[in-house]
Design a binder for these strands. Structure first.
Lengths: 345, 345
DNA sequence: GAATTTTAGTAAAATGTTTTATCAATGAAT
DNA sequence: ATTCATTGATAAAACATTTTACTAAAATTC
């Protein structure tokens, strides 16, 4: 059996109170001599506090619930890693759940984690919640007094702490870059229309067109699902529209376009320019390396943890729910080039 | 405040014992009428048991500690996902820790998780432990009575449950394939020599050469570190040895070779054949698609969980520590071709 | 109708800690 | 020499459950 505080107390002939006081380093309560006796006994007996029992009385578990759509997705696994490592520094551990992008799982894990008394929850919601669901989320947070932070995606509600990316700016940067390369017919492969990130990135696309005085042509927009396959499927349609460039709302779909271009014997960027979104590690190893919009994942994760820690340490009220927005950056590699008139002949 | 079992008891005018008995569905103790009254009250009051308090008395947390070198690595994130999802089905949650491949972190997380009373630990060790460390691991497992399972990598000790891949077979399959394509000078980029998987995959390589009656030439072996960069750095040396094919002990390094080949204007597979190991998702989108040794990650994860569950449900003694070995398979894509004599001219 | 068994329920202990309130002893101040 | 403050330490409560051992009442048996 594991050594308990009682065992230590018995070993030194003192009360558990005294032992606990020493072990928790309570300020000037116990004289140095006693303290050292206790410390030595604890060490000799290899005492390690039972976290469960501590949680029982302190009401803190030093555990964070991390709810993500899919940990095997490169972006989320990177984010999860950063978040875990940062929390670890503060003595917190993370419990994680994969929702597979379904709303029921969002709530299921949230409740599960709250039953386990996590101190806080960080989540990337699977979709844009309805009024009812937002309300429900709030009630859960309030009733259990657990701070919830949205990362990467947020809800239409200002009451949640959020740390996000300026998705619209990302869409703008990508599109603007293609426009300045001379492209006029720029197709866009979106993610699911129900997702805010799809909408926001597309808004950036529209905004860039507008600023350049170019018309927005709905025929150039194809709805995808953020997976490789939808890039594959989108290409024939895009070619049919005589687009000379494509803005893919994520890199996975861009990879799909690459693949399909090879089947059509089209070369990138000579025959088709393409810009992705996310900057996953593989981009630079594609042929040609994929130009994309990079997200500062590490900064996002680090900020999220730091912010959450200020809340957990009571320095900040979670109800003063501000939103932090990080800026994406265009990463030029080799998948887009100047528009050449000859290509149209 | 959250509803407690006391609140429910008070609401229905019964004791907490009765409420607990009903809620835990203890067989034929409480008559149906009473049971329904309690159930209704629990529902009305939105009662959810406090997991911490339950753990306090049952000594079970329904939590698993998952210790991995790097969750942002495609192989591990996929594995982690499978493991989490499977455990979730059984009502278990997983706490995970990134060790970044350092031994100290292996132990740090192990102790941390044990302090949190996890019911079991599944880990991929960061290196091949020394006698002392193996002993230490055993003591921790025994003293705390927590089953530890090794996945993907194991130790030189038969006392741990392990679920592994037949690494040697993988090495054999890859090399044998290249030999049968007519290659005679086959270079091999290994992982860190201290890792068993490096050694075992290399053994498969040697074994295939031997079976084919080919000599083993140490000059054709380059030590890498499983990262893209070591593939990049290995190529010039490999070319210097006049190798016509390369077996890269993982796909990431193969990607490095791809990149460097482009710089040298060498085309794959005409100028250099290459076979990787792991079968990460990107392989099929490379140009040419990368032939590789595929690991059945999903099966591995599912088996690991199932096996651990039999131990947790007391059907099996963790000390009867058997090892399960999965078989890898060669996945032929387009990165290796028949050896043409002309290339040597 | 007495003895026995079954039914329906409960009081209290136990889990491993922290924390609150308290106490005895010592030393200092009046 | 009494009072007061300080020091060193502790007993007991609290946390939210489950579980053990028990009892009173009802039902059954003879």
């Amino acid at each position: 059996m594991r050594t308990t505080v009682k065992d230590v107390a018995k070993a030194v002939g003192l009360s558990t109170t005294t032992v606990s006081l020493v072990l928790n380093n309570k300020p000037n309560r116990i004289p140095k001599a006693t303290r050292e006796i206790v410390l030595k006994a604890a060490k000799d007996l290899n005492y390690r506090p039972n976290h469960i029992a501590v949680s029982m009385v302190t009401k803190k578990t030093h555990t964070i619930g991390l709810i993500l759509p899919d940990i095997s997705n490169l972006y989320f696994s990177e984010l999860a890693k950063v978040i875990e490592e940062q929390f670890h520094k503060y003595g917190y551990n993370v419990l994680y759940g994969n929702t597979n992008g379904t709303l029921e799982h969002d709530f299921e894990y949230l409740n599960l984690f709250i039953d386990r008394s996590v101190d806080a929850v960080i989540m990337t919601v699977s979709s844009n919640y309805s009024e009812k669901e937002i309300k429900s989320l709030h009630e859960i947070a309030e009733m259990n007094n657990v701070p919830i932070m949205m990362v990467d995606r947020t809800l239409d509600d200002p009451r949640f702490m959020s740390v996000l990316l300026d998705q619209k700016l990302g869409g703008y940067l990508a599109t603007n870059y293609l426009i300045h390369l001379g492209h006029r017919k720029i197709a866009c492969i979106t993610g699911p229309k129900s997702l805010r990130i799809s909408i926001e990135r597309l808004e950036g696309y529209k905004s860039a067109l507008q600023d350049a005085g170019l018309p927005f042509d709905p025929a150039l927009i194809v709805e995808g699902d953020f997976r490789v396959d939808s890039g594959v499927q989108a290409l024939p349609y895009i070619l049919g529209q005589n687009a000379t460039a494509v803005f893919s709302l994520n890199d996975m779909m861009a990879i799909g376009v690459y693949r399909e271009c090879r089947r059509y014997h089209l070369s990138i960027p000579q025959d088709l320019s393409i810009v992705g979104f996310d900057d996953i590690f593989i981009d630079e190893f594609l042929e040609p390396p994929l130009s994309t919009i990079a997200q500062p994942v590490v900064e996002i994760g680090e900020y999220a943890v730091k912010k959450m820690m200020t809340v957990l340490e009571g320095e900040e009220d979670p109800s003063c729910a501000d939103t932090m927005v990080f800026k994406p950056a265009l990463k030029v590699r080799g998948s887009a080039s100047k528009f050449m008139e000859k290509k149209q002949m």
